[in-house]
């Protein structure tokens, strides 16, 4: 479904991604784990067209999406929940969700999806009229994920959804990620520092170090890999 072919991305003269290649098949949950500054977020921003890659190619559903601007990438069906959630703080919860569905015009479908996200996160229904910035961190993460679902994406990019959240909420968020994948068949690319949790929900995983992919394997194998254990699982 998505293929990165030796993608290199730079910030000025600094090379953040060094010939990254990876593939994501339809219906999979793929995780990308790695330390701070490894280039995980840059990978997502490169796919989304926010930080356009300088070399390589990004293929989505058989066609190159290199050079498209961010809004066009969204129109192709790739939605990102960025790091730090980036809720529109002065828009209400409802308006934030409306923004997610901005490019759609099927009123029926939008209503169905709205009910769907409210069934996933009933707290959002209660807070509909409240400004996004007044929500707690966990609620904001729920809203950020819901906002992305409202676009009915083919591929959902999640950047550190567990960052800064209480363990109980983290558990809940990962459950929902799994549920979205199973119920809607949404393909998910999950970037995480919480490698343990991420590998438990993912089918396959990639390990990133200093802008390079150093390991690629099934999630189960990565969980039992000694190097991964030492470096990322804290065992």
């Amino acid at each position: 479904m998505l293929e990165l072919q030796s993608v290199s991305t730079y910030y000025g003269n600094i090379q953040a991604l060094k010939e990254i290649s990876l593939t994501i098949e339809k219906g999979e949950i793929i995780t990308l784990i790695g330390a701070n500054g490894a280039g995980k977020s840059t990978t997502l921003m490169s796919i989304s067209g926010v930080v356009p890659p300088r070399d390589g190619d990004v293929i989505f559903q058989g066609e190159s999406i290199m050079g498209m601007d961010a809004a066009e990438v969204v129109a192709q069906g790739i939605c990102q929940v960025p790091e730090g959630r980036r809720i529109f703080p002065h828009l209400t919860v409802q308006e934030n969700l409306d923004m997610g569905a901005l490019l759609r015009s099927d009123r029926e479908g939008i209503r169905t999806d709205l009910n769907y996200v409210f069934s996933l996160f009933p707290i959002l229904a209660e807070r509909r009229g409240q400004a996004g910035g007044t929500l707690s961190g966990g609620e904001q993460q729920m809203l950020a994920i819901s906002r992305a679902i409202m676009a009915r994406p083919k591929l959902l990019l999640l950047d550190e959804p567990s960052l800064g959240l209480a363990p109980l909420i983290v558990q809940q968020i990962f459950e929902i990620i799994k549920q979205i994948n199973q119920e809607n068949g949404t393909t998910i690319f999950l970037v995480e520092q919480n490698a343990n949790q991420a590998l438990k929900v993912a089918h396959r995983g990639y390990v990133m170090e200093n802008g390079r992919i150093t390991l690629a394997d099934s999630a189960a194998n990565l969980l039992s890999n000694q190097e991964v254990k030492n470096a990322y699982l804290g065992v």
């Binding site: 961010a70 939605c79 960025p82 529109f88 828009l91």
Partner: peptide, 18 residues
């Protein structure tokens, strides 16, 4: 709404397709 969203977070605005 797109204007308000853009003024609050331009990068996120592009990420919802504005």
């Amino acid at each position: 709404k797109s204007m308000r969203a853009t003024s609050q977070d331009r990068v996120m605005a592009t990420l919802v397709g504005i």
